[in-house]
């Protein structure tokens, strides 16, 4: 039987590890479905933000007053780079027999992700210093919820990465660990997409108007 080249989203293990490749399909598909449900969650937050950022300013700060665009741009770059480095980690998972490359790229991804979270927290802190707290207006409530939900996802991804690094040590590159890394990769790339939307429709739109 000819193997379908792309059994599931993300990097397919293919002939480099046939056993894992064959069992991966339903597991990755299930996770992919979960990601779609998660996207709905973000979509709802975006829709809410879209209306509240215009209608819910309540005489308080407006987007242009409080957004730090250069900072958001650097965050975007960090996150995009982390997606590339995670891509490299996936390649190492697929092609390299040793774990050294894999761990290196994962740790690099972790640092970039942590840097992103650090900068985001700094942004929040600056906003709060200016009195732009979520309790101030509907606009700020929906801004903080949307961006923080993304941030919490990234943080969860970081924790997940730590657990998987530990599992790499304990179990080595077993099928389970490989499949978990592949799911984390999907999660990570998906969060990037969400961030692209946040950067565009929250930050750029907010400042451009």
């Amino acid at each position: 039987m000819k193997r379908q080249p792309l059994l599931h989203p993300g990097l397919n293990l293919g002939s480099t590890d046939e056993y894992s490749h064959d069992v991966s399909e339903p597991i990755i598909f299930g996770f992919w479905v979960f990601l779609m449900a998660d996207l709905v969650l973000f979509a709802i937050l975006f829709a809410t933000y879209a209306s509240m950022s215009v209608q819910g300013q309540a005489g308080g700060p407006t987007p242009i007053d409080v957004f730090d665009l250069p900072s958001a741009f650097i965050e975007t770059m960090l996150l995009l780079t982390s997606s590339i480095t995670f891509g490299m980690a996936s390649l190492a998972l697929k092609y390299k027999a040793d774990s050294l490359h894999l761990v290196f790229w994962l740790v690099l991804t972790f640092c970039l992700g942590a840097g992103f979270i650090g900068m985001e927290l700094r942004d929040f802190w600056v906003m709060i210093q200016q009195g732009a707290v979520p309790q101030r207006s509907g606009f700020l409530s929906s801004f903080f919820l949307l961006v923080a939900t993304h941030g919490i996802h990234v943080t969860a991804g970081l924790f997940w990465m730590l657990v998987l690094l530990l599992q790499l040590r304990v179990f080595g590159r077993t099928t389970e660990v490989k499949l978990r890394l592949m799911r984390l990769a999907l999660f990570w790339h998906m969060l990037d997409i969400v961030w692209v939307c946040i950067f565009t429709f929250v930050y750029l739109f907010g400042v451009a108007q």
């Binding site: 809410t48 209306s51 509240m52 209608q55 819910g56 300013q57 309540a58 308080g60 979520p134 309790q135 101030r136 207006s137 509907g138 606009f139 409530s141 929906s142 903080f144 919820l145």
Partner: peptide, 15 residues
């Protein structure tokens, strides 16, 4: 104390 659905400060209960 957020303002998603409150009467004041930009909340929108219709949402």
């Amino acid at each position: 104390g957020f303002h998603f659905f409150t009467n004041d400060l930009g909340g929108n209960m219709m949402n």
